[in-house]
């Protein structure tokens, strides 16, 4: 029972970070129809920049956080402006985007290795650990879950209630129609990438705080985010959250019983099962987009 509770708690903490990544990816996919795997690079870059600002730079966390998020948003913006938009202008189809995004992801991965080296960078934070009936959770972990919940709610509200949110939904539904209605779709995509990358940046900072900044985290998050998004249903915010919870639960259980070296394969096994078992048409993931 204690094991079960501890797995559940760990799963919720992991899911909080995954959900930030997956909803960013999902948000970007909804308006631009790009599986933005290079999002992983944004996350890893944010983590390393945060680490660098707060250790080498000696800045307080809040300033380092702002710096890391700024870098994340800038990266997302540049990738959209100089890679995805030209591809869109050329009317590229699906796999062209995929190869481009894989190239960006691996480029970023190599750039981080070149700049920061191969070893993981830890901030070495001591936090207060609560122990309730054998289940352990730190104050930092509680903070992570709260921060993710707050940001995701804010994003949901933004999409639901603002004019820009409406423009985004219109662009997602029908780009040509949105253009006809006078929506500047290119600007919408720009903002989409900025917001999605901001969420990724926060996810990177949270990872750097909880674990460490690790050069392999870019690829890892690209895959986890994609899997969680597909599991829950693409282009759906609640889907991204549910998918993240599902993925994190299975992963944590697997790590608990078999060890962490299987961790990266788990997402794919889950994805494989879900994609193969889905009905030929009409699958929308665990959550149907409302």
């Amino acid at each position: 029972m204690e094991a079960f509770l501890q797995i559940a708690v760990n799963a919720v903490i992991t899911a909080a970070v995954y959900a930030l990544v997956a909803s960013g990816l999902s948000f970007i996919y909804a308006t631009t129809r790009v599986f933005h795997l290079a999002h992983g690079f944004v996350i890893a870059a944010s983590a390393f920049v945060f680490w660098w600002f707060s250790t080498t730079g000696g800045y307080p966390w809040i300033l380092s956080g702002f710096g890391a998020c700024a870098v994340a948003v800038l990266l997302g913006f540049l990738m959209n402006e100089f890679v995805y938009e030209p591809l869109r202008a050329r009317k590229t189809k699906g796999l062209g985007y995929l190869v481009a995004t894989v190239a960006l992801l691996m480029f970023g991965n190599a750039a981080i290795l070149a700049v920061f080296g191969a070893q993981p960078r830890s901030l070495g934070i001591q936090t207060h650990v609560f122990d309730a009936a054998g289940v352990r959770i730190s104050s930092l972990q509680i903070g992570i879950v709260l921060a993710a919940a707050f940001l995701l709610s804010a994003l949901a509200a933004f999409i639901r209630f603002t004019r820009f949110g409406k423009a985004m939904r219109a662009t997602a539904d029908n780009e040509v129609m949105a253009e006809v209605l006078g929506i500047h779709t290119r600007r919408v995509r720009r903002l989409t990438f900025a917001i999605g990358s901001f969420l990724g940046g926060v996810a990177g900072i949270l990872m750097a705080l909880e674990f460490n900044a690790d050069p392999t985290m870019g690829v890892m998050f690209a895959i986890k985010g994609f899997s969680a998004m597909v599991l829950g249903g693409v282009a759906s915010m609640p889907g991204a959250v549910v998918g993240s919870l599902a993925l994190a639960s299975v992963e944590q259980a697997a790590v608990w019983f078999w060890g962490s070296s299987w961790r990266n394969a788990i997402a794919f096994v889950l994805l494989f099962i879900v994609l193969l078992c889905k009905p030929a048409r009409g699958w929308k993931g665990l959550v149907v987009r409302g």
Binding site: R90, T92, V99, A100, A103, M106, F107
Partner: peptide
């Protein structure tokens, strides 16, 4: 560095 160069070339070709 090699990977970065390869990926930059790959991107240029895709674009």
């Amino acid at each position: 560095l090699r990977l970065m160069i390869f990926m930059a070339i790959l991107l240029a070709f895709v674009l």
